[in-house]
């Protein structure tokens, strides 16, 4: 695992994700609060884009705990199963590759451990023993962007009243969905609202027919049927120019100008931008 690209990648993406989270923070505040209260552990938004996060699975009391790498999640086999587990201090976590969803690896968010280059052989394992109480977040480098993330909760922190199954992830998502749908609806309707505003603010009415005229029109309509839309009159040109007396000099100048421009740009694009820039495929 290349330190440079992996770590830079994480930092930058997390920053961006932070920005995205801030955008929905206001609306999602209540939801996040609920999630924290229910699961008892604050993952700080780590699981907000992880589709298979379904609370913390309690595996306390075991010396060795297995997490599958490459389970159905996030639109393909891009998940850890289970995404979050609770273990006792001193437990060894064994990650076992399913061989599905392409090549994966396990990389700690804080750089504490890494399984190295992503691989896709089924049965591959990687293990790590967790001694200290706390939360260890990790991800798969190639599939971080699509939400292949997990966490190990070590010890009893936040456990107890309230239960373990916080449905925070899905609730927050639907909240986001509503926000999205609401903004779309509003934006699509905005021209209508604006048109209605223009129509009813009174100006149009002022130039429209008076009540008397309306009544008059109504009477006409009753007598003669609905109004027929009349077209604007056809305007005769100021001067008629026939085929034989018309030489499009202006058009000729314009198209010749266009031709010169195109030829110049073509030469520049082909010989300077393209052939002047190597390397190029030669076989």
């Amino acid at each position: 695992m290349s330190g440079r690209s992996g770590i830079d990648g994480l930092t930058r993406r997390e920053l961006l994700r932070g920005g995205a989270a801030a955008g929905t923070a206001a609306a999602g505040l209540a939801a996040t609060g609920t999630a924290t209260a229910q699961s008892g552990v604050d993952f700080d938004g780590w699981f907000s884009d992880v589709s298979n996060y379904d609370g913390i699975v309690d595996r306390r009391g075991q010396d060795e705990v297995t997490v599958e790498v490459g389970v159905q999640a996030n639109g393909s086999d891009w998940g850890f199963g289970p995404a979050a587990v609770r273990v006792d201090p001193g437990t060894t976590v064994v990650w076992e590759w399913t061989g599905r969803g392409g090549a994966h690896n396990v990389v700690a968010e804080n750089d504490g451990y890494s399984s190295g280059t992503a691989v896709n052989e089924a049965g591959e394992t990687f293990e790590q023993t967790f001694e200290e109480t706390g939360i260890s977040k990790y991800f798969c480098d190639p599939h971080l962007a699509v939400g292949m993330k997990g966490a190990i909760v070590i010890g009893d922190m936040g456990a107890g009243a309230g239960g373990e199954d916080g449905g925070g992830g899905s609730f927050q998502l639907s909240q986001e969905g509503w926000l999205l749908a609401g903004s779309f609806g509003l934006a699509v309707a905005s021209p209508l609202i604006f048109a209605a505003f223009l129509r009813f603010r009174g100006r149009d009415r002022a130039v429209g027919p008076s009540d008397e005229t309306r009544n008059q029109l109504k009477r006409v309509e009753e007598r003669e049927g609905p109004p027929v839309a009349e077209e604007a009159p056809v305007e005769a040109p100021a001067q008629e120019i026939e085929h034989d007396e018309y030489d499009p000099w202006g058009t000729l100048s314009l198209v010749i100008g266009y031709l010169l421009l195109v030829v110049t740009l073509w030469v520049f694009m082909y010989f300077v931008e393209f052939l002047g820039r190597g390397p190029t495929v030669i076989g």
Partner: peptide, 15 residues
């Protein structure tokens, strides 16, 4: 605005 406007109010501006 055009769609919601009333019909038969004067002639059209196009032909």
């Amino acid at each position: 605005g055009t769609w919601l406007a009333e019909r038969g109010r004067g002639t059209l501006s196009v032909n």
